[in-house]
Simulated scan of single mutants.
Amino acid sequence: MRTKPPASAKGNPGILHPYTPGLVAFEYTRNTHHPKPHTLIFIGGLGDGLGTVEYVTDIIEALYGTKWSVFAPVLSSSYSGWGTGSIGRDIDEIAQCVQYARKYKESTWGAGKVVVMGHSTGCQDILHYLSCANPRPRDEVAEQSGNTRGNGKVRSVEGTAEITRPAVDGAIIQAPVSDREAILWELKTGTDRDSPAAMQEVCQRAVLEAQRSTYEDQDSDYGCPPIKRDTLVPETVTARIGYPAATAVSSRRFLSLVSPNSPQNPDEDDMFSSDLGDEALKRTFGAVRDRRLLKSNAPLMVLYSGRDQSVPPYVDKEVLLRRWRTALGGDLWHTGSMIIPGASHALSDDDQAEPRQILVRKVLAYLGDVEV
């Protein structure tokens, strides 16, 4: 979801793991004398990186005397990298982190469990991980990432990606919200700088231009036919609709977040909008069962923030969660799923002590279910 300033976080010791060439994950290890065979892999939202989601510190402290440690991978899309990234590339990198964590933990402590948890746009990553074709369809444009080969360029072609995602022992999504609905609400209400009419004109022009020239062709260094590269949306546009001025946003990612053809034809990032039809939900929540990447003894747990600033007031959260549960299937929906009363988007406000306690209790209880 929308990017935000980094939160202050307590320092925690740990180990920096290079889980794949060019990418690292930080494992928080406050209690190295206690066996830690199990792993909770945490994926943040747009603009997040190490230590930017405050409540992760609470989870780390709560896991001190348990058999679980927290892995926080730095993806190519972490920090400002989200603007030119995609959730398709994210799930490839998450898969590599899952594979690494399993192998590392088994060699250190013996075979253990791996649970993935997403916050905000990290929820799109988790649901896409569980529901997308495995291996996923390859992108139609060239991708630039921290995991590079040869001269640093990764050339995408038709077909499927090289990475097959391993199954996980559990999955949690916290603050699964719709970027598109948040943007539409801002267009309706306006900002301190722009009226609703001005905002709508700016966004409409940006969408039309991004659709008209999403890619540009560049000669390939491989002696192959020209390949497509993303174009960029002007910063004067992205800054006015709430994105950091210093973050470059590709036309492709912009269209994915705004998803102008929704709700009939939602783009990749548009998974949690309240107006999506049942058919759209079948392609995400409804596809989890067939992919078999989530083990049946640990269903998906959804923790929705009751006072999420990114959710328009017209959204009926209870109805939305019931629709997701129906699409997923009741047996794959964890009974601990809930709307956390009073919780803000990232539970980082001054009045969030009680919601954070609820969230931590829920996560610990879920991990206890997985461990059995």
Rank of each mutant, 00 (worst) to 15 (best):
W82N: 05
K113S: 06
K10R: 08
A197Y: 11
G47D: 04
E186I: 10
V154Y: 03
E354W: 13
D278I: 11
R89P: 00
P299A: 14
Y304S: 10
K282M: 14
P35E: 04
E140R: 14
V360Y: 13
A248D: 11
D349G: 05
P73S: 10
L127D: 00
I59E: 08
S107L: 06
A9P: 00
D270Q: 04
K295F: 04
Y79I: 05
V74E: 14
T148W: 05
G47K: 03
S156V: 04
K10Q: 14
N31Y: 04
A246Y: 09
V207K: 02
D350F: 10
S310A: 13
G112C: 09
C224M: 10
A343T: 09
E140Q: 11
A182Y: 02
I227L: 15
Y64I: 02
L347V: 10
T191I: 07
N297I: 00
M338V: 02
P137L: 12
R102E: 14
V114L: 01
T191E: 03
D139W: 05
L184K: 09
S220T: 03
D90N: 13
K282P: 12
V116D: 06
A298Q: 02
G146A: 08
L328Q: 07
K113F: 02
E27M: 14
K10M: 07
E201F: 03
T284H: 04
D192Q: 13
A175P: 01
L127F: 00
P73I: 13
T39R: 06
Q124T: 08
V202Y: 01
T335E: 15
R149C: 09
Q200H: 08
A327P: 03
Y304C: 06
D350V: 10
L367T: 07
T66E: 06
K105F: 03
Q96K: 11
